[in-house]
Design a protein around this nucleic acid. Sequence first.
DNA 1: CGGCTAATGGAACAAGAGTTTCGATAATAT
DNA 2: ATATTATCGAAACTCTTGTTCCATTAGCCG
Lengths: 209, 209
Amino acid sequence: MDQPSRSAGTVRPGGRTARVRAAVLEATQDALVEHGFHALTMDQIAARAGVGKTTVYRRWGSPAGLVTDLMNEFANQSSPHADTGSVEGDLRANALMVMEALNDPRLGVTLQAVIAAATSDEQAALALRTFYLRRIDEWATVVELAVARGELPQGTHAEELIRAVSAPLYYRLVVTREPVTREVAEASVARALAAARAGAFVTAGDRSP
Amino acid sequence: MDQPSRSAGTVRPGGRTARVRAAVLEATQDALVEHGFHALTMDQIAARAGVGKTTVYRRWGSPAGLVTDLMNEFANQSSPHADTGSVEGDLRANALMVMEALNDPRLGVTLQAVIAAATSDEQAALALRTFYLRRIDEWATVVELAVARGELPQGTHAEELIRAVSAPLYYRLVVTREPVTREVAEASVARALAAARAGAFVTAGDRSP
DNA sequence: CGGCTAATGGAACAAGAGTTTCGATAATAT
DNA sequence: ATATTATCGAAACTCTTGTTCCATTAGCCG
């Protein structure tokens, strides 16, 4: 092999190279939507994108490499946290945003593909972790603001609360594979918030006097 | 194709057929542990199990079929719910059981493989859903008993509470891919319980007078 | 603009996955 | 025991996937 090279496409990234990447990522997403991750072959992507398959192998190396790049692309489109004035409103905004992402035909399928790829590909796993930790960090701000406003107990673990809001949605998506509805999203917010108000997100020995 | 036949192996399931199945499932699990789901090929499984590859194709059809059968095998080893005398003890037992399953080298890897397969294979998805809905149903009993004992509010949604205990563990396993530690399991129980005690698992308009 | 060379892509090749055929073997019924 | 036939498995086959080679194209820098 040419070493699934991280070097190709870095010296002259403009013009053609950029167009090739765009075409390949577009083709990858279409293929994912139509046939799912298991049917993602480098051959078909090359044909579909109208580029040489040599190029696809050289730059992405494997189907996992393709979905990883796709995820990194999403990671750049950051979505800033809400600011509705109350934790409840902010967390609901977060839950609904996640719900919509999971239900979006293209985005939802892509996320599932990356999750699948990450179970046996280290690069995909890293991209996934990085993406979500960044998101969690971004939204943790709404919890910190709520604590400052006195809406939640001092010492509430912000990141953990954000995780708790999303977790039931992802659980349904990938584990029980049940629909992720608005009711599910809102119930998740209500429960996470109830626990937070009861101080269950305050680390033991971390509560202010 | 021979139609990934559900019929082969059902008329004379004794003796050889059973031995072949055992050898193939064993080989599948070993291969999963060593190389992950993406490297699971029918060819290699056949060689490893010492059976003809024709047989593997005929009876399982695809890698997804293999992991699905593996999951169905686990489904038969039911694990009855705990009965420690308190909801807290029972839910903790559940969370620790899940944690251990996810961290078990063979079981954890297998679960992840099925989750990956389920993202693009309908049979795997069905097996996964069936397995977990049955588990949730089994453990929901501990919540119902707790309500009967007066430990939790009347009308607490038992299945939802069980889901809430597991969700953060699976979220870490497949989404953020962070370690699933004992602390994570115990924190999850504490939070779900706090929400339950606050009545957040009582469906609106379903609370007793 | 013109040279340098990164990057692409067609073609030929190699490797491996998936399929079909058919004779051998062994589970079950009587 | 013996007949019946479900199930298995070796081999030959086809098709797809993955790799290598090298000529062509087009970014980028002076």
